[in-house]
Amino acid sequence: MYDFKPDPSLDPAERYRQLRDAADALTSTELDGVANMANVAALIWEFLPDLNWAGFYRMGQNARGESELVLGPFVGRPACIRIPLGVGVCGTAAQSKTTQLVEDVHAFPGHIACDSASRSELVVPVIREGKVVAVIDLDSPEPARFTGADADGLEALAQMLADRI
C-alpha cells in the first residue's frame, strides 16, 4: 500500500520536490500512460491543498481528425470531455505550449466552466519531442490560489512525466 502524505507545513519547493519523488516512484517502471496519469492525479490531490479538480487532458482527435484535448484521469467532479485547441485555459495552454496561471477564471476570455465553484486555475502542458501530449489541469475554489512556485513545481512534474504518459 502506498501512503504519500506530505507535511502540511512544507514550503512549496519542498512540497513539489516530494510530489515529484512520489510520482517518480509510481511511474518510473510503469509503461501504461493512463495508469501513470491516474496515480499522478491522485498524488496531486493528496499533496496540494485547496483544489476542487486535479487531472489530465490528453491530446486526441475529434471526428473530423482535428487535434483537441480529451479528458484523461482526474480527481474531482465530472468534467468537460473535449476541449478544442485555443479554447479555455486548457486549450490555450495546449495551443501555445505555455503554462497558464489564471488568478480569476471569470476574467479569462473563453473560460470553460466545467465546475462553477472554480475560481482560479493552473494548466501546464506536458511536452514530448516538441509536441504537447497532454496538459495537467488544477482548479481551485479559491481566487488567486496558484503562485509562480506552483507553476514551477508543476512544470518540473510535467517534464518528468513527458515520456511516461
Rank of each mutant, 00 (worst) to 15 (best):
Q100D: 06
T29L: 14
W45G: 03
T99R: 08
S28H: 10
K97R: 15
G65Q: 02
P84G: 10
S116C: 14
L154C: 03
A41M: 05
V126H: 00
G110L: 13
A25W: 08
G65V: 05
I165W: 07
S140M: 09
G110V: 12
T147I: 05
E103G: 15
D50K: 09
A38D: 08
P109Y: 11
L138F: 05
M37C: 08
P109Q: 10
R164E: 03
L71R: 03
S120K: 14
V126N: 00
I165A: 10
A144Q: 12
Y2R: 05
D3K: 08
C114R: 12
A156M: 07
S120Q: 12
D115T: 15
A107F: 10
A94I: 13
S67G: 02
L43D: 02
N62F: 02
S9C: 05
V126C: 02
D3E: 13
V133F: 04
H106L: 15
M160Y: 14
I83E: 04
V75M: 12
S116F: 15
I44N: 01
D3W: 07
A117Y: 04
I81T: 12
P78A: 09
L138H: 01
A149D: 14
G55H: 05
R58F: 10
L19R: 00
D115N: 15
I136G: 00
L85C: 03
G65I: 10
P49L: 07
L26Y: 09
V34L: 12
E155R: 11
L122F: 09
V70N: 00
A107C: 11
K5Y: 05
T147D: 03
K131V: 14
E68P: 00
F47T: 01
G153E: 04
R64Y: 07
Q159F: 11
G33Y: 10
D11F: 04
A42D: 08
L43G: 01
L51F: 03
I165S: 05
Y16W: 06
A151V: 09
E155H: 04
F74G: 00
R77V: 12
V87F: 07
V132L: 11
D139L: 12
A134I: 10
C80Y: 05
R17I: 04
E46P: 00
G86C: 10
I112H: 02
A151C: 07
N52S: 04
L161V: 06
S9F: 06
Y57H: 00
